[in-house]
Design a protein around this nucleic acid. Structure first.
Length: 459
RNA sequence: GGCCCUAUCGUCUAACGGUUAGGACGGAGCCUUCUCAAGGCUUAAAUCAGAGUUCGAUUCUCUGUAGGGUCACCA
């Protein structure tokens, strides 16, 4: 008897991560894995990793790597040291198949080969045609009549087992005690139980977690819903793994309190597989974005800086090696501005590449019409600008005084009449941070020069 | 279509058979420095329908309806 089987007998919890490497790591699978992970860790159990690559046509090494990489990124790693590949286990399956055939529980079946690619001979399971009831941790008892399954195919040949056979044998040999999978697996369960009974394997405890759905209410699929079904999409977009975990856990589960933010540690304490919803949950990316922002804001300063710098380095902005980027104080101010405007790190790169902050590095080209807020008269704007300039000259580098005095001026002359031309002159953009923030980051000297130039151009 | 599963605001969800049906995201409005964000406050928004059980049903039962899943020599 194998080591694993002994453990199962001792009721040591063993769960499995059985991805099929036929595509990039799917976000829905990540969630199912998370539930497995939480359950296993809570019970001091083992998490075995199994690549279900019996479909030679579609399985690819790069996908297996993407899945393993995604799990590592999310911080929910199985026990990779015991990784099993179904493609390397044909001898084992063959043994069981031969036994099943010898015992009359399966048989070689001659088939009519009307379609191309179909075998003239396959191995079918001799269906005892009975009713099967199994218990599910999430849905209680589920009953099936297996008669409708007929004598289903379990292998194309002795060397080519079909999924159901391989799964049952592997779960048995690996001592899997709890099968926690998507509820699209519910209808597979009765035939797998039939096979279990035929090979004398114990029945694991099942928990079918509802699927995570797309906004249209259907199963998330790459074909229908695109890149957003892949874990790597979120990784590349600059989401924080802890935020992803938090979000994934909350689609379909909640602790029954108002708490929204959970660390892995907290999840491990309060997660309860039995409290997982029965209904599928829609993947709501807006909530994810909100959550991710919360996580970004809670990051230690050094991590904020390093993430920000990485985005800058990765970007294709013309000024990324400019002197200014070496000015620590300037960069801190820029980061502060940016942090107010992002939900995920990838947006930093997007904004920088879109030129949204170019005006901080070079003087913007101004449009005289836009300086005039709501068609103010040129004369008025010029006179206001001159007043601002005199405030700046008087106070020179006392930022707080300048801010106070300009604000007083704005109250007197009309906020928009002062603030808009000022802000636009400094940034050259219709949308930007407020003028005081701009003066602060640009410096009084540069701000003054920009205003002087604008006044000249207006005349 | 057969079989299986499910049903509370748009979304994620809370509510020993007794609540003004609660929270969060998103929305709307207002405030906060003109704009964009961020933030604050306020607000709209739900028990699928019909029977039954019960003094009383979001909660239990049945029926219907709707949605989803699954019906491979894919996994």
């Amino acid at each position: 008897m194998s080591e694993n089987k002994k453990k199962a007998n001792n009721k040591k919890v063993v769960v499995r991560f059985p991805p099929s490497p036929t595509g990039p790591f799917h976000i829905g699978n990540a969630r199912t894995f998370l539930f497995n992970y939480l359950f296993a860790k809570q019970n001091n159990g083992q998490i075995v990793f199994r690549l279900e690559d019996t479909d030679k046509e579609r399985s690819r090494e790069e996908y297996a790597k993407d899945i393993a990489g995604g799990l590592k990124w999310l911080g929910i790693e199985p026990d990779f040291s015991t990784t099993v590949k179904q493609s390397e286990r044909t001898e084992i399956y063959k043994k069981y198949l031969e036994k099943l055939i010898n015992e009359g529980k399966a048989y070689l079946s001659k088939e009519e080969t009307t379609e191309e690619g179909r075998r003239a001979e396959v191995i079918r399971f001799k269906n005892p045609n009975k009713k099967i009831t199994f218990n599910d941790l999430i849905r209680d008892d589920i009953e099936f009549d297996t008669t409708e399954l007929k004598d289903f195919v379990i292998a194309k040949s002795l060397e080519e087992p079909i999924y159901h056979l391989a799964v049952v044998i592997d779960d048995y040999e690996m001592g899997v005690t709890h099968v926690i999978r998507g509820d699209d697996g519910i209808s597979n369960t009765p035939r797998q139980i039939l096979i279990q009974e035929a090979i004398g394997a114990p029945r694991p405890i099942y928990a079918h977690v509802p699927l995570m759905l797309a906004p249209d209410g259907t199963k998330l699929s790459k074909r229908k819903h695109g890149e957003q079904v892949s874990v790597s999409f979120y990784r590349n977009a600059g989401y924080i793994p802890e935020a992803m975990i938090n979000f994934l856990a909350m689609v379909g589960w909640n602790p029954g309190t108002d708490q929204e933010i959970f660390s892995m540690e907290e999840l491990l304490k309060i997660f309860d597989i039995k409290k997982v919803q029965k209904k599928g949950g829609v993947f709501n990316i807006e909530k994810l974005d909100w959550l991710n922002r919360e996580y970004i804001l809670n990051l230690p300063d050094e991590e904020k800086v390093s993430n920000f710098l990485r985005q800058l380095t990765d970007s294709k902005t013309k000024w990324k090696d400019s002197e200014k980027t070496k000015d620590k104080i300037f960069m801190e101010k820029l980061l502060k501005i940016i942090l107010d405007r992002i939900h995920k790190w990838g947006e930093v790169k997007e904004m920088l590449e879109a030129g949204e902050y170019d005006y901080l590095f070079e003087r913007p080209i101004l449009d005289n019409d836009k300086i005039l807020w709501k068609k103010e008269s040129k004369e008025k704007v010029i006179s206001i600008m001159k007043k601002i300039l005199s405030i700046m000259k008087k106070e020179e580098n006392n930022y707080n005084e300048i801010k106070k005095n300009i604000w007083n001026l704005a109250e007197k002359e009309g906020k928009g009449d002062v603030l808009w031309p000022l802000r636009y002159t400094l940034s050259g953009r219709e949308k930007s941070p407020d003028p005081f923030t701009l003066i602060d980051i640009l410096g009084v000297k540069e701000s003054k020069e920009r205003i002087e130039k604008a006044v000249e151009a207006l005349k």
